[in-house]
Nucleic acid binder design. Structure first.
Length: 441
DNA sequence: TCTGGGGTCCTAGGGCGA
DNA sequence: TCTGTCGCCCTAGGACCC
């Protein structure tokens, strides 16, 4: 028998060390983006709903009904248009203002129900319960579901287990067998854990992507349980320490820690364009806007960067056109979060990599080597302009007051009409007064 | 015509100084 | 002075997540 949580619990009881049991919950919003759209359009309940990526490119969220129609994740929208029409699929452009706001409502409720929370993504959170020998997880999970759906309309699945990877497994079971489980599942014994791992296909395990799954299947590893039966050495050799940590976590020994909220290590703003650009000026304007956006994100988390990367790509799907893809890292001699400085250095890099004669489809700016803005080191040849700090404060404040991105640098936009394709955008029901739902009697 | 965006972590391999 | 080795640092690339 492995050193599962049950063994430890037994020891705890024998030796009288109470109150050291740790349990994780993974709470996951069901079909989150699609659910957000449905909350304000109840006539779409039980109807297939999909949400598209930026530029209405591909499917990034599906309701259960849409999944049942065989629409895969990442499906290019234009290839599935016929199927959408035939089955009356409700199609939405992504509305991040709405999803972000709904997410923080859900997370606030969860935070009230747990001593510690790690917001893992826009629709998922891990909750950590320490010293919880006498907690009734079934009741807790039920209460969680009730409160979240009652306050926000979003339904969630809940998985409880002694490690994060197992909580993921438990959540998967809760979601897959909603009718039987009531939308929650608790792994609290070695027997339940083994049963769950034997059921779990290897490619569905958290941390096992397509490549690893293929390799594992080749070696006869078909379930999460098979994975745990391999030796530590073999796992480490083939899947590095990441694989080994996962294995231990699946065995019930917590190896994947609870992450505290911390500042981002890289910040990126990248976009595909709604059409291909060939002119220097068009792409240049985008690069400046991306740099400005990165600068705003840096200031929002009170950090500076010491380097940035600029990249451009042509459209890889258009094989008949000449392809070009290049990136460059630009070191900045002093830490900065000034929109002006960052766009200046981004343009330096862009000038270096831009080549005429190509059809550009995508570009981006990523800021690197991020440091806190209160720890700016004075460099010997400091040529940053200290007046920028004040100027950026004013710019942020004004953008906050009069609406996002109204104040721009002169090098942005240039009268051009860049716009993301968002033909099926729903209203920002929860964050814009002029877009709230109006009920007529 | 039309195929997303934003992250993290790890490893291998090269340069370099002790 | 030359050569080998070790460890550190850096970068590119590859894997993963949602």
């Amino acid at each position: 028998m492995k050193h599962g949580y049950f063994c430890r619990k037994l020891m705890i009881n024998l030796y009288g060390f109470r109150g050291s049991l740790k349990m994780y919950a993974l709470v996951d919003c069901n079909n989150f983006y699609a659910s957000c759209e449905r909350i304000f359009r109840p006539e779409l309940n039980d109807k297939p709903v999909v949400v598209l990526s930026n530029n209405d490119g591909c499917v990034i969220a599906r309701s259960n009904e849409a999944k049942a129609l065989g629409i895969p994740m990442g499906a290019p929208a234009f290839k599935y248009q016929k199927l959408f029409d035939e089955h009356g699929v409700a199609v939405f452009s992504s509305n991040y203002a709405l999803y972000g706001d709904m997410s923080s409502r859900v997370m606030n409720i969860l935070a009230e129900m747990a001593p510690e929370i790690e917001i893992y993504s826009i629709d998922e959170a891990f909750l950590l319960y320490k010293n919880c020998e006498y907690l009734d997880f079934q009741t807790l999970a039920k209460e969680m579901r009730k409160r979240v759906v009652g306050s926000t309309g979003v339904s969630v699945s809940v998985g409880f287990a002694p490690t994060k990877a197992l909580a993921k497994v438990a959540n998967k079971i809760a979601k897959k067998f909603t009718k039987r489980t009531g939308g929650f599942y608790v792994i609290d014994s070695d027997e339940k854990r083994d049963k769950a791992l034997k059921w779990m296909p290897i490619e569905d395990v958290w941390g096992i992507g397509g490549r690893y799954a293929k390799k594992l299947r080749y070696h006869g590893v078909n379930t999460a349980y098979d994975f745990t039966q391999k030796s530590d050495n073999w796992v480490k050799k083939n899947f590095s320490v990441v694989g080994l940590r996962l294995k231990r976590d699946l065995e019930g020994v917590s190896n994947i820690g609870f992450e505290k909220v911390q500042n981002k290590k890289n910040i990126a703003t990248t976009r595909s364009f709604e059409k291909m650009y060939t002119e220097y000026g068009d792409v240049k304007e985008r690069i400046v806007t991306f740099a400005v956006s990165c600068a705003e994100k840096l200031r929002a988390q009170k950090t500076c960067c010491n380097a940035l990367m600029v990249f451009v790509h042509t459209n890889g799907h258009r094989k008949e056109l000449a392809q070009y893809s290049q990136n460059i890292v630009v070191k900045i001699p002093f830490p900065t979060n000034s929109s002006i400085e960052l766009s200046k250095y981004a343009l330096k890099g862009f000038d270096y990599i831009f080549k005429k004669g190509y059809h550009y489809k995508k570009a981006g700016v990523i800021v690197l080597d991020i440091t806190p803005d209160n720890a700016r080191q004075i460099t010997l040849f400091e040529d940053s302009d200290p007046r920028h700090i004040q100027l950026m404060k004013v710019m942020d404040k004004m953008n906050q007051l009069i609406g996002h991105h109204k104040i721009k640098l002169a090098s942005q936009d240039l009268g051009r009409t860049w716009k993301m394709r968002q033909e099926r955008l729903s209203p920002r029901y929860t964050t814009r007064l002029d877009e709230v739902i109006i009920i007529n009697n």
